[in-house]
Amino acid sequence: MDLHERLLVQVSARDVYDAVALAGHPGSGLVFTGQAGHDAVRMVRRRGYDGPLLADRRRYAGSARVRGTARLSPDWIADQVESGATAPLTDSGYIGKGDHEALHTILEQAAQWEDVIAVLPVHARWVAEDRTSLMRTVTDYGASVALVVEDGPPYRPLPFPLLSAGIECLGALAHGAAWAAVGVREVLRHLYPEPHEARGGWRRGGARSAFVPERLEFVPVERLGEGTCGCSTCHGRPLRRLAEAGELEVNTHNATTLHRLHNRLLRSTHRERWWRELTESALTA
């Protein structure tokens, strides 16, 4: 159940019955999101899944999100250990722009437990203008961390694991992150600033955005253009057909195509160069 170089799929706890179908690839795993995340971990373990499993409480998101100075819950850590999670994640609050107090509070509290991953949900400025301070602080504490980066301008990848991310996951892995988690739907691929308006690829029944590898983008299924897909879900058929497909089929396509890229990354000798060339190619697609 090693997390090393894994590309995990982040889902809601309510996705428990479909989740394993999205994480059946070698090098995969699951992150269940929400207050019932540890219950979903326990259920999947009982059904025999032996891959990596994490639970992200996500107290840092939404209009009622808490600040990073909030007390971490020992019960949340204990519940994850009991459920069979690969490693416990802290139930951290949000770290705003320049909020060094919140950053230090999370890391200091997380240090009281062994083998716990400190979740750091940060304002975009932390990975742009304040990245040196962020990296130095994490190094000083010697902590295992996972970043959640609030929506903002593009930034150079950091060598830290990512939660609730999109294609940035591959960039993080290419730059030395131990693992990363890609969200299965829009709300789990973003940390929206508050207040915000929901965007991109929604229909009744769930998010419906399809990953287009040539563009390195998740595109709402209604806006898919010409072209076919050769993944094991699409079998060379037109991508546009996903506009009429169910949410699970769209998300299976997404997981399959992302893990094909993940495999290419793992085989690459010069991973940072591979990522740079891939992103440059997508800009011209």
Rank of each mutant, 00 (worst) to 15 (best):
M1F: 04
D2C: 10
L3Q: 12
L8T: 09
L8G: 02
V9K: 03
A13V: 06
D15Q: 06
Y17I: 11
A21F: 06
G29P: 04
F32E: 11
G34M: 14
G34I: 11
Q35P: 03
Q35H: 14
G37W: 01
M43T: 14
G48D: 02
D50V: 10
D50R: 15
G51P: 04
L54H: 00
A55D: 03
R58S: 15
A61E: 09
A61H: 01
S63H: 09
L72Y: 03
D75L: 14
W76Y: 04
V81M: 06
E82W: 08
S83I: 03
A85H: 08
T86K: 07
A87T: 08
A87E: 15
P88D: 02
L89V: 02
D91V: 01
I95T: 05
K97C: 11
H100V: 15
A102Q: 05
L107G: 04
E108W: 09
E108S: 15
Q109T: 08
Q112A: 11
D115G: 05
I117P: 02
W126L: 00
T132F: 08
L134I: 10
R136W: 03
R136I: 01
T137A: 14
A143F: 07
V145M: 07
A146P: 05
L147I: 06
V148A: 04
V149T: 09
P153T: 04
R156P: 08
P159Y: 06
P159H: 10
P161T: 09
P161D: 02
P161K: 12
L162G: 08
A165D: 07
I167L: 11
E168L: 02
E168Y: 03
G171S: 08
A172G: 09
L173M: 10
H175Y: 14
G176E: 09
G183C: 02
G183N: 12
V184A: 15
R185P: 05
L188S: 05
P193F: 05
P193A: 10
E194P: 10
P195T: 11
H196R: 08
G201F: 07
G206Q: 08
A207G: 15
S209L: 03
V212H: 11
E214Y: 04
E214W: 03
E217S: 14
E217Q: 15
F218P: 02
V219T: 14
P220D: 02
P220Y: 06
G227Y: 08
T228I: 05
T228L: 00
S232R: 14
P238H: 13
L242G: 04
A243R: 13
E244K: 13
V250C: 07
T252C: 06
H253Q: 09
T256Y: 01
R260G: 05
L261I: 01
L261N: 07
N263E: 14
R264L: 10
L266W: 00
T269S: 11
H270F: 07
H270N: 15
E272I: 05
E272N: 03
E272S: 07
R273G: 01
W274S: 06
W275D: 06
E277Q: 13
E277P: 00
L278G: 01
A282N: 10
